[in-house]
Design a protein around this nucleic acid. Structure first.
Lengths: 127, 127, 127, 127
DNA sequence: GTGGTCTAGACCACT
DNA sequence: GTGGTCTAGACCACG
């Protein structure tokens, strides 16, 4: 899986890395139990500092998306285990993001039908 | 309309103000043609710097959600002025936010049906 | 409040800082609403890097012990607000630590009465 | 006695092994004079490196919780050999851990009565 | 060889 | 002037 980072975005790089890995898990490109690249490898591949990748992995670990096994690096958690162990505030964050994105879609002229279809499609992608 | 700001959030204050006004327009609490508070009044009410509100208004204006009338301050634009055509016009940022939020909902264990229902409900709220 | 750090301990410095601030809140040396030193000031005072203090503050913030207000630095949260917003796993961690410490006390020959008295005393300190 | 290890915890594996054996001695699952599994057997059973178990045993021996009998492997020490006199002998590390855990319990909203009751219960468990 | 921690110094967005 | 982010390079404990 190749990450596409947008330096110059207002979204911090470590957050972009985190987001793309979350997307990768959700759409199946990253399978449960699969090993993620080592911090050094990913940092090298993306052209960023190891600390930056470290921060992304630390967050993913705290959010229970991955496990940082001291032996074999970081592995994707089983979906059953992704039931918010670490961060109770995340669902609320996600819901707020959802609400805002939908409000913008509405103001952009998208009707209800189109929006619901879009959301369903985004859900299905890569199931 | 009262703004609820979360100082200490990772979302900048001016962006929180911008977001809440967008939400207000979408759910009808703010009607097209309605005057927004003056920068100074809103800053005073929220206990933030006028620079902060100024930044929020500037962004809303640039995004065509409001118009800056020199006499009457900032007013909400007519929906015709905000509306664009079809799916394609959903701003990329909004669509990316949507995709990410839906991915997180999926990983939180929400099934397709529940998600679609939630999105529909969020769309309807305050229509 | 002066922090006493033990470089060379196996406990990471940022964790020592975090722990001492938690202790300070618990025993009243740090009052709710009180401002903590700025990251730079504390780093300077302790002779450590700003990143280290930053990490301690980030953790305290995530654990809901402090608020990092973007305007006025970090402030101690109201006790009512310290009800585990961020990290559900912490109480379990604390309970495990408690269990282990008590086991060691028992093996060190401390009887039940002395232990309970000690725990009560530690609880009262600085109420 | 089966050890339950949490790879991916921030507590090193060898320390988890050490801790669980201490707990086992305290609650009576491990009796004085009882033989511990050989390093190789325990390592095999837990799926860890023999070096890791070795490190745990070395620490336990240094802390006088076990003895390394050249013929029969590691055996749990007689309680007399572990017991010391009174409050003062509580190892500083343990007391600091106790203090911190109690501070966190207090900040989590636990009142004095509940805490003392919990500590007493933890003491009694498996006496 | 892994992740975790730390340093010294820098830039930036936000207020 | 604040916290947040990032870099380049380093050391260490762990396994």
């Amino acid at each position: 899986m190749l990450l596409q980072l947008d330096f110059g975005s207002d979204v911090p790089i470590y957050m972009q890395i985190r987001n793309q890995i979350v997307l990768g898990i959700a759409d199946g490109r990253l399978q449960p139990g699969e090993r993620l690249p080592t911090i050094r490898a990913l940092a090298n591949e993306c052209g960023v500092n190891t600390m930056t990748v470290n921060k992304a992995y630390a967050r993913l670990k705290q959010e229970a998306f991955i496990e940082a096994d001291r032996r074999s690096g970081a592995v994707v958690r089983m979906p059953a285990g992704v039931r918010r162990a670490g961060d109770e505030s995340l669902p609320r964050r996600a819901q707020e993001a959802l609400r805002l994105a939908i409000a913008e879609a509405k103001l952009a002229g998208m009707n209800r039908e189109a929006l619901v279809e879009l959301c369903g499609r985004l859900y299905d992608e890569g199931v």
